[in-house]
Every structure is written in C-alpha cells, then in structure tokens.
C-alpha cells in the first residue's frame, strides 16, 4: 500500500510533464514515420517496417532511462527524498516505487509504436504480442540504468548523460540505423558486448517468429538487466545512507 502510494505519485509526476510525453511517445513515432517515408522513396532493407519497428521500440526505451533518472535526481535535489526517508517507507518501497510505474509506460510506448507500424503496413500476427511482452525485461534494463544514473548524478547532469550520451550510445550501438557489419571490427565487438544490439536482435527475431533466434540475445538482456538492477539498488542504498 505504502509502495503503491509512492509509485502512484511517480506515475503522476512523469505523465504530467508534457516534455516527457513529447519525447517518450512523440519522438519514436516521428522516427517511424520519417524512416518509413525514406524507405518508400529509397528502399533500404534495414528500414522495412518489420525491421525498423522492433528497433524503434527498443530505442524509445532510452527515454525511460531519462524518466527514471530525472525523477530520482530531482527528488534528491529537492530534499523530498530526505523527507520520505524519515517515513515508514522501506528501501524496497523506494526501488519498486521508482521502477514499477515506468514499466506500463514502456509497454504503452511499445504498443503505440506497433499500432502506427500496423497502419504503415506491418502484418498483424501474434508475434507482435510476443515482442510487446519481451519488451518488459528490456525496459527493466533501461529503467535500472536510470535508477543508477539518478542515484549518482544531479538532475542537470542526468539531462546530459541520459538525455544525450546514453541516447546516442543506444542508437549507434544497437544496429537500428545501420548494419553493424558495415563497420565491423572493434566497433561491432563493442556493440555486441553491450546489451542494446542484443535487445534489438531479440525483438526482431520475435517479430519474425524466429524463436530460436532470440538466443543468446535474451540471456544478454536478462544478464545486463539483473546486473544493472543490483548495481542500481546498491548505489541507491548508498546515497540513501549518505543522506
């Protein structure tokens, strides 16, 4: 009950910020529409709607990192967290309260992207449902990254690090915008050592109905999600203790 009250507050804070809605929902949709328009004029396999949509649904999660990092950093900066630390809320309540409200937002973002993709010609199959369900572990990965950044950085730093650096990292190293084989070498090795391209490959395989193809990418996603979540919890508890 206590945790739900706190989670409810966090949902309201995120959804009431028009910039969050504009970037969280608007930007991925603009990208789908724009790249589909390019694809209509200059056909590129990578931008075909069945390839593009899973990538955009993963890229859109970068904004979930920004949401979670910003709300925690702002709460720390305004002393609201300090006030809440003197209440019966437990560390588990805080972690879940910051994490849970963003998962439905991430799923909603994914669903909206698929609705637009269907309008643009994506075949309606049950595989879309699988892709939406499997976006949940990917979203936990991105939210954990936000928890981690929000526990360490100020809200201004979070804007630069999560808003610019992480968004670019997630874009360049995910194989959404260009085939990583085109660059190859160390760049590709780095990309495959990080979780972003694995998340995209997994989502693409799910949408294509290639269930064998989700491995080993699912393990990479789950491994990074669990590691980042544990790290985020430790850093959050550390800053809580430092208060």
């Amino acid at each position: 009950m206590r945790m739900l009250t706190f989670a409810n507050r966090n949902t309201k804070e995120i959804l009431r910020d028009p910039l969050n809605l504009a970037f969280g929902l608007g930007f991925p949709l603009v990208l789908i529409l724009l790249l589909s328009a390019i694809q209509a004029n200059i056909p590129v396999e990578l931008f075909e709607i069945q390839h593009l949509t899973p990538g955009i649904t993963v890229f859109g999660l970068s904004f979930m990192t920004l949401f979670s990092a910003t709300i925690i950093a702002k709460d720390r900066g305004s002393s609201l967290l300090q006030r809440l630390y003197t209440t019966p809320l437990t560390p588990t309540d805080f972690i879940l309260g910051y994490t849970l409200p963003i998962i439905p937002i991430a799923v909603a973002q994914c669903v909206i992207c698929y609705i637009v993709a269907i309008i643009l010609g994506l075949n309606v199959t049950v595989h879309i449902l699988y892709s939406v369900v499997c976006i949940i572990p990917v979203s936990i990965l991105y939210i954990a990254l936000g928890l981690l950044c929000g526990s360490v950085f100020t809200d201004k730093q979070v804007g630069g690090i999560c808003g610019a650096l992480l968004t670019n990292l997630s874009a360049w190293l995910s194989g959404i915008w260009f085939d990583l084989d085109l660059v190859g070498g160390v760049f590709k090795k780095i990309a495959y050592a990080l979780p972003f391209v694995h998340a995209v490959d997994m989502e693409r395989a799910l949408l294509a109905g290639n269930f064998d193809g989700i491995f080993p990418h699912l393990w990479w996603v789950l491994g990074y999600a669990v590691t980042l979540l544990v790290l985020a919890v430790l850093l959050f508890l550390r800053q809580m203790k430092k208060q």
Partner: peptide
C-alpha cells in the same frame, strides 16, 4: 527539511495524500 521538499507535479491535496499514504 531546509529545502522545500514537496512533489512539484502534484497538487497541494495530492502532496498531503502522498504523506497519508506512506504513513498507511
């Protein structure tokens, strides 16, 4: 606390509801 520790995106009533909720 020293800094004004309120939830800025919530109304005054919602801020009070938040504190009631966390106290069960």
């Amino acid at each position: 606390p020293q800094e004004t520790a309120v939830a800025p995106g919530l109304s005054v009533r919602e801020n009070l509801e938040l504190m009631c909720g966390v106290h069960g």
